[in-house]
Design a protein around this nucleic acid. Structure first.
Lengths: 195, 195
DNA sequence: AAAAAAAGAATGAACGTTCATTTTTATCTA
DNA sequence: TAGATAAAAATGAACGTTCATTCTTTTTTT
């Protein structure tokens, strides 16, 4: 049997340090030496786990994006009605963005800067399929507005990133009632209004 | 009389170069030497116009943010009804984000990374007041949902940033009918639904 | 005892900023 | 107005530092 060479713990520590340092300083102001220090590892050791700095940050991005979508769709099943399913997924995503905000901040920074390879970006989008399927069904049933997935995402999901950043920056504090407001805003932006 | 020393053109060229290079490479991967080259100026000259690199990027941020809000509120007047006023401002902002996308991209990157001083960030928010006033009026009239300004902004305005980035990345192409869809989504997310 | 993993020190390139000098502009004088 | 002079603006080269990455050696594991 080919044993698991190299420790998974060390890799995780490196990913974790990368997230924290990039959140606070940005990609290019985060030296490998600091990442190494925070992960209690020699700079040279990083290169046993990752090809180079760009590879490290790409892999970190994919890791975090995967954690995000795994969280979002955990316990979701397709038997739910479109409205129920959307509320379920939306609230999971809200949970993730507001509780795991280190991860969410990292994604927000990656998604708005040229620091990630186009390929890793594409890789990260894949995992959103269940939500896109739900929307497709919603459009067929006449429950969801017949708009492109990007428009639906822009209004139903993406605002959570803005709210998370605002909260992280101390501009607002999101309590339960505001999250409920946000959900209602999200739903009313994409649902087809009753006549 | 103290004449206008130093050329305004040169300052503008530096700001323009900063926007373009930061958009393509990020703040820390944009060397002063490249900014200088693109502005047809010696590196040392930059320091006659700005204190240092951080100051240059802060000033650029404020410049662009000001241009953004100036554009958004040009020709707006408070006599309009809340619905009319919102549509007017929204469409101006959409115009700006989709046509002046170099500027909009720069703002999006600044707003999601630690590259800007907290103080310059605050400075940039100020100019949004007319929109906040409109929303205040809308809430009083029972036309706009009684939510915090951050929530309203998150759903009514911020999605345009996401759409602009997606278009810039080549993922979508926004035609007039999609912009109209986006407007309807924005409005339905914040308006109070008829009973 | 051999192989794999990890380490710290070393390397060369790139960066922000400053320095010494030159070029341009404005002011003054005859 | 022409020429001289001073001040301001601009420059290219240089400095000291920092960084990603590699090299050589040591430690750990098999």
């Amino acid at each position: 049997m080919v044993k698991l060479q190299k420790s998974v713990d060390k890799r995780n520590a490196l990913i974790k340090a990368t997230i924290e340092l990039v959140n606070n300083n940005g990609f290019h102001a985060t030296p490998m030496s600091k990442i190494a220090k925070m992960a209690h590892v020699s700079p040279a050791t990083i290169y046993l786990y990752f090809e180079n700095k760009q590879d490290l940050v790409n892999k970190t991005y994919i890791d975090v994006k995967t954690a995000y979508t795994n969280y979002a769709f955990a316990n979701y099943n397709e038997d739910m009605s479109v409205k129920e399913g959307f509320e379920f997924i939306w609230k999971r995503i809200a949970d993730f963005k507001l509780n795991e905000c280190e991860h969410a901040m990292f994604l927000a920074q990656c998604d708005n800067s040229p620091m990630i390879d186009e390929q890793s970006r594409k890789e990260g989008i894949k995992h959103l399929q269940p939500l896109l399927d739900l929307w497709e069904r919603g459009k067929k049933e006449g429950v969801i507005k017949p708009m492109s997935d990007y428009l639906l995402y822009a209004y139903a999901i993406n605002p959570l990133s803005f709210l998370m950043m605002s909260e992280k920056r101390g501009a607002i504090k999101l309590d339960q009632s505001q999250i409920e407001n946000a959900y209602q805003a999200a739903w009313s932006s994409i649902k087809i209004a009753p006549i």
